[in-house]
Amino acid sequence: MRGITWKTVALLLAVAALAVTIAACGDDDDDDGGGGDAGEQADAGADKVKTAIVLPCPTSDTWCKQGFDAAKKLEAAGAIDLEVTTNAPQDTAGVTRVLAQYAQGGTELLLAHSTYQDAVFDVAEQFPDVNIASFAFELKDNVAILEEPIYEGAYLAGMLAGGITESNTIGGSAGQDVPLCHAELEAFEAGAKRTNKQVKMIDAYIGDWNDAAKGKQATEAQIDQDADVVIACGGGPATGMAQAIKEADISGFGYVGNMDSQAPKNIVGSVIYNLDPYFEAAVEDVRNGSFRPAKRYEFGLADGGVDLQLNEGYSVKEIPADVMDQMEEVRAQIESGEFKVPYVDGT
């Protein structure tokens, strides 16, 4: 039972110290150069908002891709200077360190793209100059909340599902039974019941956000229970679901981002959570100095924050024309404010 002697570690720290010294010398040069660059950039776009987005997953994950794409769009439009961290740590201490480093570096707007409540509050207190938008649930002067009315899109998806299903059984699987997912699945069911009174919905909560194999297994279990149209909530459950419907050749709906490519014939459409209006509003507020006191940003179906994007290549079943019309009608009603999708979060 042996490990490293303390001498080894001491020596290591000494070497590290040496490395710093060397690096520090190198750094000085870099800083001069870097400073110059920054200056030129500032001249070029004086009112670009210095922005960073911190994503908890790689950009191949639909949740992270939506955030990444929205931020990239603003960068391409010249509205922001963007820095990106993907695969960010999940522990509060770890993500605090990452967020703090951006704040310290003069980032004006931090898009903390997960439910990083505690880390976000710590950093907001420690660095009062930074503005943060996150999926927090408590407001602070410099912490804005991004709402997720994904259930509105799920309702429309459910309406189509009610028309498509032949077995009158639909399924939904989610990472955890949390309000976000609960509301999505409830809305999916309510939508389906609107177009098909006989529909029965079965659900599964797999207890893991990332385990795609378990997500696939959950969807397969529902297929065995005769489900022929399904939806999912969470990265792992959704990718697993896409693989399951492809193999069983049934229908399903994409979650958060466009999932057509994962099951090109089987995805009826994707419930899109579009962050463009959210990030645009936050950037605009920072630019105008109106970010504080921070607010809740909520853009539902009516405001382009949520959408149901149909897949051209979907070919498992014919979607009945009257159901499609009904769905479009309800979409119009939601957009005009005439109809409000019931929000049932199970709490």
Partner: peptide, 29 residues
């Protein structure tokens, strides 16, 4: 184990790992 199962070693090892991780988090940014 890195600290060789003795108290001082554990202290050094804990700091060492924390430096790598915490410093690394800042570095990645």
């Amino acid at each position: 184990l890195l600290g060789r199962l003795n108290a001082t070693g554990v202290l050094l090892a804990a700091v060492f790992i924390a430096v790598l991780q915490s410093g690394g988090q800042a570095m990645s940014v």
